[in-house]
Design a protein around this nucleic acid. Structure first.
Lengths: 190, 190
DNA sequence: ACAATAAGCGGAGTCGACTCCGCTTGCAAG
DNA sequence: CTTGCAAGCGGAGTCGACTCCGCTTATTGT
């Protein structure tokens, strides 16, 4: 285990995330990083040390909310059939990504498999999809060879293109199409 | 009809596109626009007048090749069944977007429905998908309510996410999934 | 306590994107 | 040919992203 952060560094880290959250909320996601650093009362160099890319910062800002999205899976599975649960989760995913300032822009970086340790959100999302998919497969509603990773990427792609198009409806239609693909050649189980 | 471009302006336009094509090919798509302007022998202001965004420039550079991709549709339909033709065109689309320097980055702007006159490539692509889809529907292999616009966006989304992930395989798997969705509940026609 | 040192800090500097506006010029009407 | 002017030009200026490195300080072992 690598020795943990120095106390002052930890404090700065927290203040940067808070400042970023505040600034994103009021000024939008394209605020200059310099402004965020100033708001946090640190130098620009310090910000870059902790968050080498803008995406790293965004990921940190929204980490809690991402967790919440993922931890909603069990309730969804209780309240609905597995396919409907999957649909609703995907809709929530898209809403979430499109609503939170800057999140959509960071999505590629978050989903990306790059060496980095941006693992947290990625793992959480992967598990959420995995759970939903397993349930649907177990219920015989989705074919067994469906890959959670691929499905996550598909939802990511849907989010990206819908976001760029500013067409929320498009996302819903594509989600339906995706579900059709996943449930194909399995036939209604009754 | 808006009076056409002044002769010297037209010449500059052409030189900029040529310079950009040359520079993208040798230096990659992230070359500075200043460098392209210099290569073309014009001021940076002139470049921006003609191509307000980097995407506009990229679209212009690759317009011919996009047309070629679209005009290949008839051959595909001759050589293959409609579903297979659709698949192959999608694969070609992804290859093309991922291969041409910078094209993937410009994709959202090209597909976007924004007021602007970035119509050419968008229209060509839309027609290509439309033709392929009509053929598949006519053959009873794809359900009739499939929307060409949605399918184009879906392929765009697949391209974006696969590009960010540097996983060409992912694109093929997602294309298969998409086709499954499109052909769902139509049953093999024999 | 205190010294050694690794971790951290911050801001000046570099580079590219994009804007703005005063100067230049193709071109068409007379 | 001349002239009026819309169209066009170009580059200095502004702003943000990102790097680099000399200075500062929390921590840890003695």
């Amino acid at each position: 285990m690598p020795r943990s952060m120095r106390a002052d560094a930890q404090a700065n880290y927290d203040r940067i995330v808070e400042a970023a959250a505040r600034t994103f909320a009021t000024e939008g996601a394209d605020t200059s990083l310099k402004a965020i650093a100033a708001e946090a009362g640190v130098g620009i160099g310090t910000l870059y040390r902790r968050f080498p890319t803008r995406e790293d910062l965004i990921e940190a800002v929204y980490r809690n909310e991402t967790d919440r999205l993922c931890s909603a899976v069990p309730q969804l599975l209780e309240a609905h059939g597995p396919v409907e649960a999957l649909r609703q989760w995907m809709e929530a995913f898209v809403d979430y990504m499109l609503t939170k300032q800057g999140m959509a822009d960071a999505l590629p970086a978050i989903l990306a498999d790059r060496e980095g340790l941006r693992l947290h959100s990625r793992e959480a999302l992967g598990e959420a999809v995995s759970t939903l998919l397993d349930a649907a497969i177990a219920a015989g509603r989705v074919r067994g060879d469906a890959s959670p990773g691929d499905v996550l990427m598909a939802v990511g792609g849907i989010t990206l293109i819908s976001g760029h198009e500013h067409q929320r409806d498009l996302a819903s239609r594509l989600i339906t199409l995706l579900l059709d693909g996943l449930t194909a050649s399995v036939g209604p189980t009754a």
